[in-house]
């Protein structure tokens, strides 16, 4: 690829980011005009606190989509992990230090299995992760049908803790996104994710360990789902097998809104971050002006179509 082509691509991505950023500002202004409570510190703090769950699952989805796949097992996995965490911590509240790493390892493992299945069976990731989602959900339901369990106070605190007035979860999110961005741009392995997503055959011919990179991307998605599940369990205090049901699809929205192409190889975590901000802020605004959650679904669907429409039209 010539340097010029690279440049044009980067500029287009920049344009995507700019569009989303402008929308964010417009949304903030609109929020400020429609409600005098929208732009208060209190509400902004709430907003920031809500970012982590959607942010983490979307980041995981970004890795997979950049690599040219899709992960539809995220929601079931998050649900299963909240059930595990809440029930484990109800049984032994003192073993938080053990429960969290276990959850993260299990999550990464499930992600790696997704990747392995697509690599070994060479089945479309949509089918593999859809199937895995069904398996995980069924398994979770066999263990617990209803929300249950509880968490110790100290654990619940991590969802609400603040550092210098800023929610801890938001800081964690920003740090993880920054590390992810640096990793994708600056390291060999990170960049190879783009390479595999752009042209898998070319990547293979260039001697990249394609299979390992595919598995890595899915494993990272699992890890992200694990982090999301930890904060989600801390916030809600229960394990609910169905809590993740909507998350799978929600995790895709910020990714495509942020300009990452579903076919793989193009996009980035900054776009996803802006997409997460946009979606969260929009939902908050709609709640403020009392738009029912039913219409919020309609709007979410329209956003996906419009975002993809804009990005794909500009590609021509």
């Amino acid at each position: 690829m010539s340097a010029i082509a690279m440049d044009i691509r980067r500029n287009r991505l920049m344009l995507s980011y700019l569009i989303v950023a402008v929308l964010l500002v417009l949304l903030a202004v609109a929020g400020g005009l429609l409600s005098d409570r929208f732009l208060t510190w209190r509400n902004i703090g709430n907003l920031l606190q809500q970012l982590i769950v959607l942010g983490m699952v979307s980041l995981g989805q970004t890795f997979v989509v950049l690599m040219g796949g899709i992960d539809l097992a995220i929601g079931s996995l998050v649900g299963a992990l909240t059930v595990f965490l809440a029930n484990f911590l109800e049984w032994r509240p003192d073993l938080v230090w053990l429960a969290l790493p276990l959850a993260l390892i299990a999550a990464t493992g499930v992600g790696a299995i997704n990747g392995l299945l697509t690599v070994v069976l060479r089945v479309h990731p949509l089918i593999v992760t859809l199937g895995m989602s069904s398996i995980i959900f069924g398994g979770t339901l066999m263990y617990r049908k209803e929300p249950g369990g509880s968490v110790p106070r100290a654990f619940a605190d991590i969802a609400y803790a603040k550092v210098g007035g800023v929610p801890l979860s938001a800081i964690v999110l920003v740090v993880i996104f920054a590390l992810a961005g640096l990793w994708l741009q600056r390291t060999r392995t990170g960049r190879s994710i783009y390479f595999v997503g752009g042209d898998r055959e070319a990547a293979r011919l260039n001697g990249l360990p394609v299979d390992r990179i595919v598995v890595l991307a899915y494993a990272l998605s699992g890890l992200c789902a694990g982090i999301a599940a930890i904060f989600l369990t801390a916030r809600t205090g229960v394990g609910d097998p169905r809590i993740g049901a909507a998350l799978t699809l929600q995790s895709v929205t910020p990714v495509v809104v942020g300009g990452t192409i579903l076919a793989g190889g193009r996009g980035g975590v900054l776009g996803t971050f802006l997409g997460v901000l946009l979606v969260t802020m929009l939902n908050s605004l709609l709640n403020f002006v009392n738009v029912s959650s039913y219409y919020q679904w309609v709007i979410q669907g329209l956003i996906i179509i419009i975002a993809v429409g804009i990005h794909s039209a500009r590609r021509k």
Binding site: I70, L126, L249, V252, V256, L262, A263, S292, Y294, Y295, Q296, W297, V298, I299, Q300, G301, L302, I304, I305, V308, G309, S312, A313, R315, K316
Partner: peptide
């Protein structure tokens, strides 16, 4: 139309449609 004319991936187009119909129905 979304898939053929707008180049939207079938997954996203029908996913968005699924959510839109769901919202309209519940509303």
């Amino acid at each position: 139309w979304l898939v053929a004319k707008r180049n939207v991936s079938p997954f996203l187009a029908t996913l968005a449609m699924m959510i839109i119909l769901q919202g309209a129905r519940f509303a």
